[in-house]
Simulated scan of single mutants.
Amino acid sequence: MAAGCLALAASSIALAQQATKFPVISLNAGMYVIRAEVAARDAERQQGLMFREKMGANEGMVFLFEAPAGVCMWMKNTLIPLSVAFIDENGQIVNIEDMQPQTLDSHCARKPVRYALEMNQGWFKSKNIKPGMRIEGLPR
Rank of each mutant, 00 (worst) to 15 (best):
M1L: 09
M1W: 03
A2N: 10
A3L: 14
A3R: 01
A3F: 08
A3E: 12
G4V: 02
G4N: 14
A7H: 08
L8D: 10
L8C: 14
A9Q: 00
A10Y: 03
S12Y: 02
I13A: 02
I13R: 04
A14F: 01
L15D: 13
L15S: 13
L15Y: 07
A16M: 13
A16T: 07
K21Q: 15
P23V: 00
V24G: 02
I25F: 01
N28G: 08
N28C: 03
A29P: 07
M31L: 13
Y32E: 14
Y32H: 14
V33Q: 15
I34P: 00
I34T: 01
R35T: 10
E37P: 05
E37V: 00
A39P: 03
R41W: 11
A43F: 10
A43V: 13
R45C: 04
Q47F: 01
G48F: 04
L49T: 05
R52M: 02
R52W: 05
R52K: 15
E53N: 14
M55D: 09
G56E: 10
G56L: 07
A57L: 12
N58G: 04
G60W: 05
V62H: 05
V62S: 07
L64H: 01
F65W: 11
F65Y: 15
E66T: 12
E66M: 08
A67W: 09
P68Y: 04
G70I: 10
C72L: 06
M73W: 00
W74Q: 06
W74C: 04
M75A: 09
M75C: 08
K76E: 04
K76Y: 09
N77D: 14
T78S: 00
L79T: 03
P81Y: 05
P81I: 01
V84F: 03
V84M: 14
A85P: 04
F86T: 04
I87T: 04
D88R: 07
Q92V: 15
I93H: 00
I96W: 06
E97V: 12
D98A: 14
M99F: 12
M99T: 01
Q100H: 14
Q100Y: 13
P101E: 11
T103K: 10
L104H: 06
S106R: 13
S106I: 13
S106T: 13
H107M: 12
C108W: 03
A109W: 05
A109M: 06
R110K: 14
R110C: 01
R110I: 00
K111M: 14
K111N: 09
K111S: 15
K111G: 01
Y115L: 09
L117E: 07
E118A: 03
M119I: 00
W123A: 01
F124E: 05
K125R: 14
K125C: 00
S126T: 15
K127A: 08
K127Q: 15
P131D: 06
M133T: 07
E136P: 08
G137M: 00
G137C: 08
G137W: 01
L138A: 04
P139I: 02
P139E: 10
R140Q: 10
R140D: 11
